[in-house]
């Protein structure tokens, strides 16, 4: 199989603009690049350059105007909403700047969320969740609610949630943006381990140079255009 050398993500001529009344605001213009499996990619650029928009498109939570996004051989721009949702659940793990945990669910239940959509039994779910929480070092905080955890711990729960269904790709939008230096470095180490030990492909939006250092490669966006 040639899959190992094939890019896991191939983006071709991707464009997106927003309409504000009569005005059309281009956000991404003719973006093309590929991401290899197991790559740890940092997307950098000034605020408003379109990093989040690009990440959302790759992760299948937003729609482009034109172009192709081929992930694992599937052009996700052609998927219907329902198929896209199913594809996301299977293929992508999400890590957000503000963690986006459900406040009414415990750490365990938050991590279990993606598994609620699978056919796994209760016991199998429990095993997966415990494994994921152990991986991020929070096995002892399973019954805590997000409000009882620090920012760094919440982000680790979010990472556990992102990996629990074992997706090939992790997308992270400023994962350290809301954390202090120590917590941020813990999170980056954790993501690095996911790439090395579990072979995940990580795409991380950041404007923190220290975060970018951790990555294998860096791509710069400026006003919706890839500059390097």
């Amino acid at each position: 199989m040639a899959a190992a050398t094939e890019p896991i993500v191939a983006i071709r001529d991707l464009s997106k603009s927003y309409r504000r009344g009569e005005q059309i605001i281009p956000v991404l213009s003719d973006i093309s690049f590929t991401i290899a499996p197991g790559e740890f990619l940092a997307l950098m650029g000034p605020s408003g350059s379109g990093k989040s928009t690009l990440l959302n498109l790759i992760a299948g939570i937003d729609r482009c105007d034109s172009g192709e996004i081929i992930v694992n051989g599937v052009d996700i721009t052609r998927l219907a909403e329902r198929e896209l949702a199913r594809w996301r659940a299977r293929s992508v793990g999400f890590i957000f700047q503000f963690y986006n945990l459900m406040p009414v669910l415990t750490a365990f239940e938050n991590v279990e969320l993606p598994l609620q959509l699978t056919h796994l039994s209760r016991r199998e779910r429990r095993e997966h969740v415990e494994l994921a929480l152990e991986l991020v070092g929070l096995a002892d905080r399973m019954d805590h609610f997000p409000s009882q955890l620090s920012g760094g711990q919440q982000q680790r729960v979010a990472i556990a949630r992102a990996v629990v269904a074992d997706p090939a790709i992790l997308v992270a939008d400023e994962p350290t943006g809301d954390l202090d230096r120590a917590a941020a470095s813990e999170i980056l180490t954790l993501m690095d381990r996911l790439v090395h030990d579990s072979g995940k492909t990580v795409i991380m939006v950041t404007h923190d140079p220290r975060a970018a250092e951790q990555a294998h490669s860096i791509r710069n966006l400026e006003k919706g255009i890839l500059t390097g």
Binding site: R88, A89, M102
Partner: peptide
Amino acid sequence: TAEYATLKTLGFG
């Protein structure tokens, strides 16, 4: 709203 968006991101319909 953000919670609903999160659930949708995770694949909930």
